[in-house]
Amino acid sequence: MNTKELHNAYVQGLKREKRFVRITQLSILILFFVSWEFLTSQRILDPLLFSSPSRVWNLLLIRISDGSIFVHSSVTLFETVLGFILGTAMGTAMAAMLWWSRFLSRVMDPYLVVLNSMPKVALGPILIVGLGPGFSSIIAMGALISVIITTLVVYNAFKEVDENYVKVIRSFGATKRKSFFSVILPACFPTIISTLKVNVGLAWVGVIVGEFLVSKQGLGYMIIYGFQVFNFTMVMLSLLIIAVLATCMYQLVELLERKLLKYRG
């Protein structure tokens, strides 16, 4: 066999492996739904508690036809995206301030540790009292939950940028401001992107808990309402929609990552 054939065989092998992975993934998904349907229809699992795929599907069709599902989904999605962007942007801005002033970072250090260890959702009632039971307090919750951890992670990344890159730009007479924007910030894009990925999940937690508390509309409201009237089909439907939307958001962040970090080759 010559090298060309060997290479072809190698590529074929790679393809086969990829196909096998995909088929297995799909099988797990199908198996999950089929056994869910089967177990609840045979009453091995209580359908009142676990619902079933067919009931969820029917409910979805009803909710699509009366349009209410779009209202709840879009409200939640809007709050999550905004909370996520605000949390990441404010966290990065705070990290920049800490990097700028050694004094500030030394002063803030114990407060950040306390705030970071504190469960942010516990502040929910205060937010609702302060900002009113509506969008703003839910968005604030989505942002609050990720802002401190973003600050800490990004600030650490800022500090750990190789001093020599700064030396290069300073030898060209750059000011501190210029060094920040042309070295520190771009050097930390990989870290910022990975905090974005973590924040996607955190923002969903914040927003759903916020909607539990405010209980007006949104997928979190659907979950808490379904729970209260013991309609677990509604709970399951909301969970599945959240799973789909959160995955889409994560994929968007990955797309951004590929765009921004294409220099890594």
Partner: peptide, 16 residues
Amino acid sequence: TPETGYMLQQDYLFPW
């Protein structure tokens, strides 16, 4: 100053 150029032990080209 712009009048001096500095070259380090490693290239420290900006990877991005």
